[in-house]
Simulated assay, not measured.
Amino acid sequence: MLTLFSGRHFMHVRRALALTLAVPVLLAGCSDDPEPTPKMPESTSSSPSPSPTETKEPEAESPEEFIRRWAAIEAEMENTGDTSEYRALSERCRACNKLADLVEQYYRAGGFVEWDGWTIRSIRAQGDEGTYLVRVNSAPTRYVEKSGGKEKFFPGGSGAHLIRLAPAGSSWKVVDKSEVDG
């Protein structure tokens, strides 16, 4: 025969069971024995072991990704006068160094350049390894060569450039840049 218990009866049973389990745990905490210290395995090296993401090699930057990054840095260089990052990415490129020299000259003389850069329409590998045809829409350029100088303007528009790259670690460097008929 089944005996039915009320919910109230089960509540009393649960409380009694909880006290029965809690008392030994509380008493164990009152002993004079020192707390046990966990034993940690001794490491075999003095440096921490690398996490899985630290052991991976950095992903190589594709030529297309590099060209887009380099073009953005060129626009930043012209707008700020800070040529250091642009030169680092273009150190063997004579045309790039001439452009950086000109930008530095304008800013040193109190002038400026305002240019929103290129919108890259396409990047296509050419016959020579490391050479890319980059088709762009160039934003208009406004510039002044020196303090108090006359403001000058380039209208911008579509164009094409041959960019030659050389490997540099997991990335690239520009070694030549020239404007070509698009």
Rank of each mutant, 00 (worst) to 15 (best):
M1A: 14
M1T: 13
L2H: 12
T3F: 12
F5A: 13
S6K: 05
S6F: 03
G7N: 11
G7H: 07
H9K: 07
H9V: 15
M11D: 09
M11P: 00
V13A: 13
R14F: 11
R15I: 12
L17I: 11
L17R: 07
L19E: 09
T20F: 14
L21T: 05
A22K: 01
A22F: 05
V23H: 01
V23E: 03
P24F: 06
V25G: 08
V25Q: 13
L26C: 12
L26T: 10
L27D: 10
A28M: 12
C30I: 08
C30Y: 03
S31M: 06
S31K: 06
P34I: 05
P36W: 02
P36A: 10
T37I: 14
P38C: 08
K39C: 07
M40R: 09
M40F: 13
P41N: 10
T44N: 10
S45W: 05
S45E: 13
P48L: 12
P50V: 07
T53P: 00
T55P: 00
T55D: 01
E57M: 09
E59L: 08
A60G: 07
F66M: 01
R68T: 11
A71L: 02
E74N: 08
E76R: 12
M77L: 02
E78G: 14
G81L: 08
S84T: 15
E85L: 11
Y86V: 08
A88K: 11
L89D: 05
S90Q: 03
E91N: 13
R92A: 13
R92I: 00
R92G: 04
N97G: 13
D101A: 13
L102H: 08
V103H: 06
E104H: 01
Y107P: 03
Y107T: 10
R108W: 04
A109D: 15
G110I: 03
E114V: 06
D116V: 02
D116W: 01
G117S: 06
W118Q: 03
W118E: 02
T119G: 02
I120L: 07
S122C: 05
R124L: 10
D128Q: 15
G130H: 07
T131V: 15
L133S: 06
R135A: 12
V136Q: 00
N137M: 09
P140T: 04
T141L: 11
Y143N: 03
V144L: 04
E145Q: 14
K146G: 02
S147M: 12
G148V: 11
G148A: 10
K150M: 06
K150I: 03
E151A: 15
K152N: 15
F153G: 03
F154A: 14
P155K: 14
G156E: 08
G157T: 10
S158H: 06
L162A: 09
I163E: 01
I163K: 00
R164I: 02
R164C: 02
A166N: 08
S170K: 11
S171C: 04
S171R: 05
K173P: 01
V175Q: 11
V175P: 04
K177Q: 05
D181G: 14
D181K: 15
D181M: 14
